[in-house]
């Protein structure tokens, strides 16, 4: 297990920053509660992925440079998203491969932890459930699953909660159809995918769907709301905090 740092950086991600800040606050609180000092650089913004995946790597680099600058010190960088985490850890080195900042981007990438990954592998977080019995289901974002490989970490935290029953989706490994700009550029395909995902969620009988990525949650939550489903889509950090307060 890596040594427990005194201080960490928190990378909120642009989506959480603008639309779902409660998830970011919950993530930071979970860390602080374990006695970790959290630093939130005010000069941070977006990881750059939207431009990178849309075919605009120069613009992505401009934004990525700003993040490398904003997170300049040697602290671990904790991020409540497998997708943005994947961008920082796996794609920054590629994005800067033939740039003067290549080595810097490598070092930056090596400091990145997805939130659940950090809570489990570095802090060995122990949770005590204070909530009522509840059934939940879990959506794995593709990047958390395949790039960051942190799904087991997130689920191991949920399984510590004694009143929480985790019911898995039938097609847990299948994409929800968000894919950033794909959701509007290929809106028909994206909709077909999320409709299937929502049906899978509903058949579990869970009261809430959890995930570690707000991109998917916005997509799935939006689709649930669209069909007036009472099931909320919630970030796992918020859920963990609520259950243990």
């Amino acid at each position: 297990m890596p040594t427990r740092p005194e201080k960490v950086y928190f990378f909120g991600t642009c989506l959480i920053d603008l639309c779902f800040p409660q998830a970011g606050m919950a993530g930071m609180e979970l860390l602080q509660r374990e006695g970790i000092q959290v630093v939130y650089p005010q000069k941070q913004s977006c990881c750059g992925q939207p431009a990178y995946n849309s075919g605009f790597p120069d613009e992505a680099r401009t934004v990525a440079r700003q993040q490398i600058k904003a997170f300049a010190k040697d602290y671990p960088i904790i991020i409540p998203s497998g997708s943005c985490g994947g961008m920082l850890r796996h794609h920054y080195p590629k994005l800067f491969a033939d740039q003067p900042e290549a080595a810097e981007a490598q070092r930056f990438a090596s400091r990145v932890f997805e939130l659940n990954e950090f809570l489990v592998t570095v802090l060995d977080l122990k949770l005590e459930d204070r909530g009522q019995p509840i059934k939940v289901t879990w959506h794995s974002s593709c990047s958390a699953l395949r790039e960051m490989k942190v799904i087991d970490h997130a689920k191991s935290l949920l399984r510590q909660l004694k009143n929480v029953e985790l019911i898995e989706l039938q097609r847990e490994r299948e994409c929800c159809g968000f894919g950033g700009s794909f959701s509007v550029k290929q809106a028909d395909i994206s909709s077909a995918m999320v409709v299937d995902k929502v049906a899978d969620i509903e058949q579990t009988g869970a009261a809430v769907v959890l995930s570690g990525d707000y991109g998917c949650l916005m997509h799935i939550g939006g689709a649930l709301k669209h069909r007036n489903s009472p099931i909320p889509a919630k970030h796992v950090a918020e859920f963990l905090l609520e259950r243990t307060q």
């Binding site: 800040p21 630093v39 997509h219």
Partner: peptide, 26 residues
Amino acid sequence: WSQSRALPTFAAKSLHVLAKEKGIRD
């Protein structure tokens, strides 16, 4: 987006603002 999904809303206070208000170090 709206053909199958409700639109999200922007938060009144961003995470940047909330973090500052909570005294989280910058």
